[in-house]
Design a protein around this nucleic acid. Sequence first.
DNA 1: TTTCCACAGGAATAAAGGGCGA
DNA 2: TCGCCCTTTATTCCTGTGGAAA
Length: 399
Amino acid sequence: MTAPTFKPDHTIYENRDALREEWTPKEIVGRDEEIAEYQQSLQPVINNEQPSNIFLYGKSGTGKTAATRFLLNLLERDAQQVAGLDLHTLEINCDGLNTSYQAAIQIINELRPPGETISETGHPQSAIYRFLYDELEKLGGTFLLVLDEVDHLNDDSLLYQLPRARSNGYVTDTKIGLIGISNDLDFRKRLSRKVRSSLCEKEVSFSAYQADQLQEVLRQREDVAFHEGVLGDDVIVRCADYGAKDAGDARTALDLLLEAGDIARSEHADEVTTAHVRRARERLQADVVVEGIQKNSEHAKLVLTAILHLHEDDRTPARTAEIRDVYRLIVEEQGGNPIGERSLRDYLGDLDQLGITEAVERNKGKGGGKYKVHSLAKPADVVSEGLERVVEEKTIDHS
DNA sequence: TTTCCACAGGAATAAAGGGCGA
DNA sequence: TCGCCCTTTATTCCTGTGGAAA
């Protein structure tokens, strides 16, 4: 086989990165109220006062992270004009970090120079906080820490310790402000009262985008990302509609537009069409399944396989016990050891939360009791493709 | 109005595994 | 090398839930 060659292809995109999540637009569209409230909460920083701790909440893709980056960029720019104000900011995404311990290590390693980072395990908890406070003390001035997807942390130790570091005398020279961002609307309720009162000093709620606002967001990116006339009729409208229908957020809509553009490019098409959008949607739905299962253990895959079998037999929505029986058969066929029922319930909860399956509570009263029934939330072929891709990717990993 | 069912899910705990420092 | 300290994943035990049936 002859070696493939790479050639630049700029027929579709002018700046593809403008469709990526990390791209910060020059202005935030459709979030005027939120931005105004957020800016107000950041005012103490520019006054060189103790910053407020801010908690942002709202569904994923409602512009929380984009608004934060946008405002912090402005804040850093304007802080340079203020005499005596020494501002440092750091953004940490807590996705993949399960504990305060891991998050603290991440912060330490971000603050330390490359050769002086610490390992991710093996340290006593007290040592980790000592390292952290040392780094914060070295910074001086004002330090704003953004903890994106903060609900991924299973404990609130860091959220309790950091806002109190100064009052407890662990840090004397640095003013610390915490900005917590969460997609989980119940996260705030789950926090202990002590943490809630400090972290949620100021709160900004981000509501879901309306379909017309989504179109506005997409059109803003279209101007930067694509060459003129590349997007076919209704592509923006279709992406906004699917985005609103699937998750009601801008990220899904932008991902869809990016994926549609990529498909069009791979086919050397001159134009991105609604047919590309449709195929992009199928592909992204399968991605959700793949990512969701990959994060979990092999058992999550088998539990989902059991639900898929039940679906194919027209036996969904299925009760936990029915899924358990099919799951056990699958595991036994493979010669493995099935997990217990309690753990299986946790996996079912995970799949539900990831949006791969859907759990509905039923109550049959005195004779039947209360229970949940589970079914696929994505089309069966999408789930099946996702499961196959996980197997393939694992095979590639091992080879 | 009370009872009862079938789970759901929280809490505590164990086991296994991995990195660090003395 | 070994003990310590952490993580992850699993288990057991137990309490809470809420609506139909009595």
